[in-house]
Design a binder for these strands. Structure first.
Length: 553
RNA sequence: GCCCUCGUAGCUCAGUGGAUAGAGCACUGGCCUCCGAAGCCAGGGGUCGCAGGUUCGAAUCCUGCCGAGGGUACCA
């Protein structure tokens, strides 16, 4: 991308200035260019002179002058200027800028890179317990995860998206007991929902579906334990519903991984346990088996097998990550978790290190929790509370595009509040429509032009000299940098903000520059080309966010 | 108590070492005989929680304090 080329110019200027004796020899920090806020400061700015003034024992402005004298010529650069208190500013050449239009317009994958080429990356996200429907707070992880997956693919990674199904353990057991109670009730028995069970109505619906399909196959004599096969049927039904609900917001996985399969004889769970035991990381105490994590600098030990013989979530999670990072051979794994799992990060990483797996290959991205409100009233989110606001309900009211945009535009580090009462209103005011409207407008103009027999064929981009045209072009050139930033920080929020800026630049252009003009066909063709380039970048940005790019609204 | 995250315009939030801190919503005023007014233009509104420190330069980094959310289970 252009920024890297200009960065190289500064590095070359430094080396040349030093070898010419205009600057003393010293090891300089890495050169980084930034975008000045004010247009009069140019398109890119290097603060290197300010950072090395001490090393050079010179005033920053003098350093900048020495560098400027050695900056090699470049087709994209019209001017290199020194500004107080010691910046080195670069200004684009208008001809070069305009010439980027056809390059962008013809590259549907504009902004892609090969940063992750040859690396297999797994992103695991959402993975809500399959003990109830997906609710709106779960959706935040789904939107972040699916967007990151798209962006990482654009960054050259080979990406697999996975949902980890917690189908064993105590929550699954309680789910099974609740389901059996509901199932029995359908046969007229006076069964009670267990304490800490799942009282929601959806359990009745699942029981009904099972009864419709299997009749009384799972009905045992009163007082007898229920058939564990019922649990699996129930979990499968719930998982199927989750899968369908997530499609509503454009979340689809490459794989669904069952926690239970880790525990087969001789599987990852057995292996990890014996491996940890051999390496001396296991202690037994109070009838339970512990991972001796305090020896590894953790604040405490952690139970991995409870005194009732059942593995904890932590134990199977070690096995799960072992499986991903060794057996399945991913180079990197990204887990996206709600902040309520924050305490789990450090002990999981320490367990991987204990198994000689470099825990740096695992990135856990935490997002702060979503709270729900209806007006001034706080709505509880727990599945074990009666009321559940499902993702499906919210999406049907607010729409997938507005929901995704809402979750993408805020930093994962900020807790957010979803107000159901304002959801509809907020959706109408959602900036996503501002962006989509830009896309629809472009489609409309291209359509009109085609109707009049006009196209961008043979366009001369050098005619794009209007201030609004150049501003728009400058925005188009930013996409590669935005994608690189998301790949590096694993935070998606630059995408929607960029989309909004780009749409804004387009709307200004549209207001000031008439595209289809019978009296000036050459200019019309050039502007149509600019529209095509803008459409490529807008559509690409929206597509990476999982938001639709409509031709009409 | 200890650990993690947050505190920026009336509201919702961007901005994580640069030059005069931004956007959307809300508010005030203006712009459609002309490609979509879901748009554009102009305006008001800020001690960037508080106090120190580091730096040529701090909303951004460090320390302390205040406030909010989360964690600190033989739940997941």
């Amino acid at each position: 991308m252009i920024r890297d080329e200009l960065t190289a110019l500064v590095e070359q200027a430094l080396a040349a200035a030093q070898s010419a004796g205009d600057l003393p020899e010293f090891a300089a920090p890495e050169v980084e260019l930034e975008h000045p806020q004010r247009p009069e400061h140019g398109d890119y700015s290097a603060n290197l002179p300010l950072r090395i003034q001490g090393l050079a024992h010179m005033k920053a402005v003098e350093v900048a002058e020495a560098l400027r004298a050695h900056v090699p010529a470049h087709e994209a650069v019209a001017a290199v200027e020194v500004a107080q208190p010691g910046f080195l500013n670069f200004r684009f050449d208008d001809g070069w800028l305009a010439a980027q239009t056809p390059v962008i317009a013809s590259d549907a994958a504009y902004g892609s890179s090969q940063a992750g080429a040859g690396q297999r990356l797994q992103i695991e996200y959402l993975s809500a317990n399959p003990t109830g429907p997906v609710h709106i707070a779960n959706a935040r992880g789904g939107v972040i995860g699916s967007t990151l997956a798209s962006v990482m693919r654009a960054g050259g990674y080979e990406v697999e998206e996975e949902y980890y199904i917690n189908d064993s353990g105590s929550q699954a057991a309680i789910f099974g007991r609740t389901l059996y109670a509901r199932y029995q009730q359908l046969f007229g028995r006076d069964a009670e929902i267990p304490e800490n069970g799942y009282p929601g109505e959806y359990m009745v619906e699942i029981a009904q579906v099972i009864k419709d399909e299997a009749g009384d196959r799972y009905l045992k004599p009163e007082g007898e334990e229920h058939d564990p096969a019922l649990d699996r049927v129930g979990i499968d039904a719930m998982t199927g519903q989750i899968r369908e609900d997530l499609k509503l917001i454009g979340v689809e996985y490459d794989g669904w991984f069952s926690e239970r399969t880790l525990q087969v004889e001789g599987g990852p769970y057995d292996h990890v346990l014996s491996e940890l035991r051999e390496r001396g990381h296991i202690v037994e105490r109070d009838g339970a088996v512990w991972f001796a994590s305090s020896q590894l600098g953790e604040s405490k030990d952690n139970v991995i097998i409870r005194s009732d013989g059942a593995p904890t979530y932590f134990a199977t999670d070690i096995a799960y990550h072992y499986d991903k990072l060794t057996d399945r051979g991913f180079d990197r794994v990204i887990d996206i978790w709600g902040a309520d799992h924050q305490g789990h990060v450090s002990r999981l990483k320490s367990s991987l290190d204990a198994l000689d797996i470099d825990s740096e290959r695992l990135h856990v991205l935490l997002y702060q929790l979503v709270s729900l409100r209806r007006g001034t009233e706080v709505v509880p989110l727990s599945k074990r509370a009666g009321e559940i606001i499902t993702l499906r309900e919210v999406v049907e009211e607010v729409g997938s595009d507005a929901t995704r945009y809402f979750f993408l535009a805020t930093s994962p580090n900020s807790a957010i509040e979803f107000d159901l009462e304002l959801a509809q209103k907020q959706s109408e005011e959602n900036p996503v429509f501002y962006v989509q409207y830009a896309h629809a407008r472009i489609a409309g103009v291209l359509d009109k032009a085609a109707g009049e027999g006009l196209s961008s064929e043979g366009a001369d981009p050098a005619l794009l000299t209007h201030e609004a045209e150049r501003t728009l072009l400058r925005k188009l050139l930013l996409l590669p940098e935005i994608l690189e930033q998301v790949v590096e920080t694993l935070e998606p929020q630059p995408l929607p903000h960029y989309a909004q800026e780009l749409a804004g630049a387009f709307h200004v252009f549209y207001t000031q520059c008439r595209v289809v003009d019978e009296d000036n066909e050459a200019l019309s063709r050039a502007r149509l080309l600019l529209l095509e380039a803008t459409r490529v970048v807008l559509a690409r940005t929206l597509s990476l966010m999982g938001v639709s790019a409509p031709d009409q609204m």
